[in-house]
Design a protein around this nucleic acid. Structure first.
Lengths: 136, 136
DNA sequence: TTGCGTGCAAAGGTTTTGCATGGCA
DNA sequence: TGCCATGCAAAACCTTTGCACGCAA
């Protein structure tokens, strides 16, 4: 449960707004870029701290791409609240693909029943090769 | 196909040996520790380069844990050659759990057929909470 | 002898932390 | 006023790269 959002500041407001409007996935860098394009000046540290806070409040999810590569954040809108989706990460082009699919739930159930492990679909990333890269 | 293993050196030999005997998963740091305990002196760079080489030769797999956290390598013994296994990562205790299960293959097939994405089971990590941590 | 392997030091990139300043309540 | 938020600079962290030296073949 999110308890207190803390103070409402200009920076936090604009970060959340741009993040929410981004729709897809965002890195600290890409978010800073978007902010710069809007003429908003926010420190990198603040973006890191705000995204961290949003994650702990359940308003964002953090994804891992590769070590050395920057982390990827996804804004959690109401449309994304469902648990029957997950992500595919292309090892070739690095793209993170969003998928809605009930089959992951079946696998999760099986793993929970048989292997005593509760899978967090929302955070799980399946690695592989996307269609476009497979063609090449 | 592994083409040429290059020169056979003392370092490469001892790294492969300790890595193979480790059984489970290894980070560059933990491998260096094991080497130190055995009185073997190997440079950190060499460990990085050797693990990278082993991965490209198909003798090791590299896993991503978290950004900032070090990468995790698994030695591929004959017992681990099958493709019907994958890994679970506990978000609570950080443990990486190895699982053999045909169900992942079914999901992979579905994703391949329906979503045109070829999943690499060997590299995929499902996030969640392990049994022990769930009890707490 | 040839050229790959090694390892130190330094650089590269991402993320975190210390600290003084500034703004919300 | 009190306390949190901000942002610069610096540190921490993992990993890669440059380069001179050493060793395998």
């Amino acid at each position: 449960m999110p308890k207190c959002d803390g103070y409402k500041t200009k920076q936090r407001e604009v970060i959340e707004k741009v993040f929410a409007l981004s729709g897809g996935h965002v890195t600290v860098d890409s978010l800073l870029e978007k902010l710069n394009k809007k003429g908003e000046s926010v420190g990198r540290t603040t973006v890191y701290r705000t995204l961290e806070k949003l994650e702990s409040e359940g308003k964002a999810r953090k994804y891992i791409s590769s070590p050395g590569e920057s982390a990827c954040y996804q804004y959690i809108s109401k449309a994304h609240q469902c648990s029957e989706h997950f992500h595919l990460k292309c090892e070739s082009c690095g793209r993170l693909i969003h998928i809605e699919c009930v089959h992951i739930t079946e696998l999760s159930k099986h793993i929970s029943d048989t292997h005593n492990f509760k899978v967090n679909n929302l955070k799980t990333v399946l690695y592989g090769v996307c269609e476009e890269c497979a063609v090449k």
